[in-house]
Design a protein around this nucleic acid. Structure first.
Length: 660
DNA sequence: GTCAACTTAAACAAAT
DNA sequence: GATTTGTTTAAGTTGA
């Protein structure tokens, strides 16, 4: 299908289509096509801008910038998905081809048709053409900007400093993006095997663009001393050669995982991201490490594009002073590296903003933006949810309740019957857990780490009269959990199954029809005897629930979840006072699912009116508690009691009762 | 390895 | 007759 489509596109390409579609189709389906569209638009826009007289309104400029951002976004997505060389190639090809039109041939086809020298000549010609257009465009833009500045100054209406700065910044970013496109284009060609970059093969235009990118303001010191803004520093350009190309490759390869095999060229990509970091250190804390050098590591020079082996630091220093002295070439390389860093910072800001938006969307109460360099640390004293600080009523599964709901690996769309085996019986009180993470479950498509039985029980107990129809139970599930808004047939069947299977759920006929109630005694009977009866086991559980273990588990879960903002107070605050129950042995030894106030430890308090005409459908077991439970299923509301049922349960649930 | 709890799926019947 | 509700059985997984 895709092959046919690609072939069709290829055949029709000469009639006017660009080559993006053909390559996209040939390579891959969706992703390539999408990127291709963006790249195509960018290329078209660039051409239009270059062909025009250079006049571009702010709106057009913004549009152009957005398109460029889109193209870069495509590159970013390539960064994200680039697990294989093929994928990266797929997504990158359209950018190249969009610029290589109108040949309308895939690189492979061109390789078949043309000899390598012809290919290189062709590519260089195209690059030169494209870059010439770009240069022309940017020169005009720069002139226009200068003109505007002058005009505004002469008019005595100086534009607000901030506006000017923004404009220049935008312009700078635009230039940087174009540079990246250019560099990526080169890298694409390398990856496609169309270009085997040799040290002196970096064409002039490839290097002149950075010169054009020189902005009259906002340039660091290193930029000074270069040629006047807008005037290419030809000397520096000519000397850049391979090293600059290598740096350019670095600029694009910072996002490329090392898995991507280097291009056919024998010139390997030098230092990916570490180069960037090294460069930053180079400019900031260079002299703070006398015993080492940020540009020296693993016995080789970390200068972008260098990788010269140096036996020791002395040799490296010597090499550094000779090969990377303060000259035009080094300055140009440093400049490129700065641009790389700037671009990365811009990208970081974008991603950070995106993360904030995502968190806000998920109602995760985004905290103040944190630098990503900040490690995710959880202070056990102040960050644990309340249900976590005190041993959450059970020791058996400390991790599960600690794990921010649904963020654990086992609960995220996990497959298989056992994915939710974080049994409710060993979890923190479901109601407190739900209360804490209500918004999360409500909005995140995450399976709650509770059993159907516990959820059904919770649904019933949440109602004032402790009874629900089946449909109301359904509604509660869908209302409380985004997860249950899909696969309705499955979980509804499970709900019905659980209602029928467990004796703790009692069907009651009343005026409304059939409703379901909870027999807490039966529910508690589901607990494993060993959990309630064995003091030794309880002791072990207590020891197993040491604070440190909790903390470690939670931190591990957090690290696993990659939701650092869950540490925000909104998610992990100590919780309400009601849930901050003392860490009593009762909690530990007691059943995980706390008994409601009308549980076994206390006499049945209220008999809801509806129970007067109830019809006990289910047959109680022989040892049923008719003797001790004269009334209908326990689960009747306790209006007099304050606070969540489980809180009362924790207080009232006595081991003695549980042992029965 | 066994057992209990749990999940999922499915079939079936009764009620709506 | 279609849908909903309720029951039951079976198979599989997991943790104790």
């Amino acid at each position: 299908m895709m092959v046919e489509s690609a072939s069709e596109t290829i055949r029709s390409a000469p009639s006017g289509q660009n080559g993006v579609g053909s390559l996209s189709g040939q390579a891959d389906g969706s992703s390539g096509g999408a990127t291709g569209t963006t790249a195509s638009g960018t290329g078209r826009e660039v051409t239009t801008g270059a062909d025009s007289n250079g006049e571009m309104s702010p709106a057009e400029l913004l549009h152009f910038q957005q398109q460029q951002s889109g193209a870069l976004g495509g590159a970013s997505s390539w960064v994200g998905v680039q697990g294989t060389g093929l994928t990266g190639r797929i997504l990158q090809v359209p950018v190249s081809v969009a610029m290589m039109s109108p040949q309308m041939l895939t690189p492979q086809q061109m390789q078949q048709i043309l000899s390598p020298p012809q290919l290189q000549a062709l590519l260089q010609q195209q690059q030169a053409l494209m870059l010439q257009q770009l240069q022309e465009y940017y020169k005009k833009q720069q002139e226009q900007l200068h003109l505007q500045l002058l005009t505004q100054q002469q008019a005595g209406k100086p534009q607000p400093k901030e506006a000017l700065g923004n404009k220049q910044l935008a312009f700078q970013q635009q230039l940087l993006q174009m540079q990246q496109l250019q560099q990526q284009h080169l890298l694409n060609l390398q990856r496609q095997g169309l270009v085997s970059l040799q040290p002196n093969q970096a064409s002039g235009p490839l290097q002149t663009l950075p010169q054009a990118a020189v902005c009259p303001t906002d340039l660091p010191q290193l930029w000074k001393g270069e040629g006047a803004p807008g005037q290419p520093a030809e000397d520096g350009v000519k000397q850049e050669g391979l090293d600059l190309t290598g740096t350019a490759a670095t600029a694009t390869s910072f996002a490329a995982p090392p898995k991507v095999s280097p291009p056919l060229s024998h010139h390997t990509l030098p230092n990916g991201q570490p180069t960037v970091l090294t460069s930053r250190r180079d400019s900031s804390s260079h002299e703070e490490t006398p015993g080492s050098h940020p540009l020296y590591g693993h016995g080789e020079c970390k200068w972008p594009g260098c990788e010269t082996l140096c036996e020791d630091l002395g040799q490296f220093i010597k090499h550094l002073n000779t090969e990377h002295a303060l000259d035009d070439r080094s300055t140009a390389q440093c400049r490129v590296q700065m641009q790389v860093v700037q671009q990365l910072e811009i990208q970081l800001a974008k991603e950070s903003e995106r993360l904030q938006a995502m968190m806000a969307h998920l109602h995760m109460r985004p905290s103040e933006p944190k630098p990503f360099s900040q490690p995710v640390t959880v202070s056990a004293a102040d960050s644990f949810p309340d249900g976590l600080v005190h041993p959450p009523t059970s020791a058996a599964a400390p991790v599960t309740p600690l794990r921010p709901p649904g963020l654990g690996s086992a609960s995220l769309h996990g497959g298989g019957p056992a994915r939710r085996r974080s049994s409710d019986k060993f979890c923190s009180p479901i109601s407190s857990e739900l209360a804490q993470n209500h918004e999360f479950y409500k909005n995140a498509d995450v399976r709650p780490p509770f059993t159907y039985a516990s959820l059904i029980r919770q649904a019933i107990l949440e109602t004032p009269d402790r009874q629900l129809t089946l449909n109301e139970i359904y509604n509660w599930f869908t209302r409380m959990f985004a997860y249950f808004r899909r696969n309705t047939a499955t979980w509804k069947n499970a709900v019905r199954h659980n209602l029928s299977l467990h004796k703790c759920f009692v069907r009651v006929e009343n005026v409304k029809g059939a409703v379901w109630t909870v027999d807490e005694r039966e529910y508690q009977k589901r607990r494993p005897p060993k959990m309630t009866g064995s003091p030794t086991l309880v002791k072990n559980m207590i020891s197993g629930l040491s604070y440190g273990a909790l903390n470690a588990s939670y931190q591990a879960a957090l690290a696993e979840s990659s939701f650092p903002l869950l540490n925000s107070p909104g998610m992990l605050n100590p919780g309400s006072a009601s849930s901050l129950l003392p860490l009593s042995h009762d909690d530990v030894g007691a059943p995980v699912e706390p008994l409601p106030s009308n549980g076994s430890s206390s006499p049945p308090r209220l008999s809801p009116p509806q129970y007067s005409h109830q019809v006990q459908v289910k047959e109680e077991p022989a040892e049923a508690e008719e003797d001790r439970q004269p009334g209908p299923p326990l689960g009747a509301p306790n209006p007099s009691a304050s606070g969540p049922p489980e809180d009362r349960d924790l207080e009232e649930e006595l081991p003695g009762e549980e042992l029965s």
